[in-house]
Design a protein around this nucleic acid. Structure first.
Lengths: 248, 248
DNA sequence: TTCGCGATTATGTATAGACATTATCGCGAA
DNA sequence: TTCGCGATAATGTCTATACATAATCGCGAA
């Protein structure tokens, strides 16, 4: 029994995917004590070296922290937040005691337009959910989000009206991403955007475009526009451990 | 012989540090075929599992790419270029056949100002090299770089006039960084910056601030201003492999 | 009750061997 | 010369074991 049966993923990858999915989906929240190595050994019927390699790698990449005798726990988001997500507004608001709310200003289901289809690499005409959201803190607009969700990958989005959670947060809970592409640009606000964000026309805005996939299947594309004076993106890196996070 | 003698680093870490240092310093440039596992086994007198774990980890983190039978080679910078560096202009220029040049517009050695000292965490009054550079491709200004270099960490910078290579490239060759912090913002160009970059006053600019350290010692801080319409930053991520790169 | 110390437990590092997988090399045939 | 194919070499995954290390637990003594 040295090799997994052909046609199925290797054990190492399977264990790793399982654990990463549980962490990214929030099923195992920060602070959660993940099973001990010997428990995972029993669960997957493998040797300790195999689960040890999985866990050490996750630790190096900042997803979990490990302590002898005490076991391994899911790390605090700061180190693994490679995403610069709108969800941060809710967290930031909770932390600082300000009032956060969001407003869905557009929602429709339409075939994908040719430009987006080409950009993303999907067949023209695929049905997508288009949704635009304004994020507000203490009555001050903080960001305008234009999003496009693949109904093929996320059929549950079809009837969703995003009443309790904004699309980004809602998605993250249901479809943890495995790959993401980010583009950051600076643009001058046109009059429409200026009105939305309550800034003057021409003010510099930071635009973050993000596309995410899950196991090769396209999930969503978001273009988020932040007023330039109110936000910046920040990240820390070292050659071995790479992580970044968004700050207000 | 299951354990390294106390007082010295573990074998795994030593091998990894050695290889990372060789890659980051440029001694093993991109494309260089690093020793085979069995050669590293012999060199360090350890089992294959140990060097295998080192190399697999480096591969996961994008420092090297591995291919069966062919061996492992140092990866192209794009995947490990967590830095969005000016050096890319020279590469980009070489690739597209455009003419790149830079002009040092300011150079002085002064005690650090209090704001920067506070920001970086250095004692007020430390001597720093201040240098400003304009980067030009085909006679079109592409970026304005304001940089501050610690003469304590990089004494060779004292007499350097940056004739052959711009400060970023020059530094990277001498002092490979081990930690970096990035901040990305969007600002409106003021009249001075507009004149420098040949854009209109008020045009949105992407500002990248980067601070780097080597083994805890501060190396440099750079603030690079790009015309918003001419540039964007791009990165790809997955929970396990994190990398990003700059594109034109 | 509190302190100290040994037992316990989970992780950290390392070994030697096994078999799978895959790309390349080189030889022989067309 | 070129094509095909088997040998070969390097990495990929996994096992079973061993001993080190560090933190916690719990018992017994002060």
């Amino acid at each position: 029994m040295k090799e997994a049966p052909s046609g199925m993923k290797h054990l190492y990858q399977r264990i790793r995917d399982d654990i990463e999915a549980k962490i990214m989906s929030g099923e195992w929240p920060p602070g959660y004590r993940i099973p001990f190595e010997h428990e995972l050994m029993a669960e997957y019927g493998c040797s300790r070296m195999t689960v040890n390699k999985v866990l050490s790698t996750l630790a190096v990449n900042g997803l979990i922290t490990r302590r002898r005798r005490a076991g391994s726990v899911v790390a605090e988001p700061s180190t693994r937040q490679a995403v610069l997500d709108i969800q941060d507004f809710a967290l930031e608001a909770a932390r600082t005691g300000t009032v956060y709310h969001f407003k869905v200003v557009h929602r429709s289901i339409d075939p994908i337009d040719t430009a987006a289809a080409h950009r993303i690499g999907l067949p023209v005409g695929t049905e997508m959910l288009y949704i635009s959201t304004l994020h507000v803190m203490d009555d001050v607009p903080q960001a305008f989000e234009e999003r496009l969700i693949s109904l093929a990958t996320v059929p549950e989005a079809n009837g969703e009206v995003f009443k309790d959670a904004p699309p980004g947060t809602w998605l993250l809970r249901r479809v943890p991403w495995t790959d993401a592409e980010h583009i950051v640009r600076a643009v001058n606000a046109d009059s429409t955007m200026a009105k939305r964000l309550q800034i003057r026309t021409g003010a510099a805005c930071l635009v973050l475009e993000r596309r995410t996939w899950q196991a090769g299947a396209f999930v969503t594309e978001a273009r988020i526009t932040y007023p330039g004076e109110r936000h910046h993106l920040m990240g820390r890196f070292s050659p071995s451990v790479k992580g970044s996070s968004a700050v207000q």
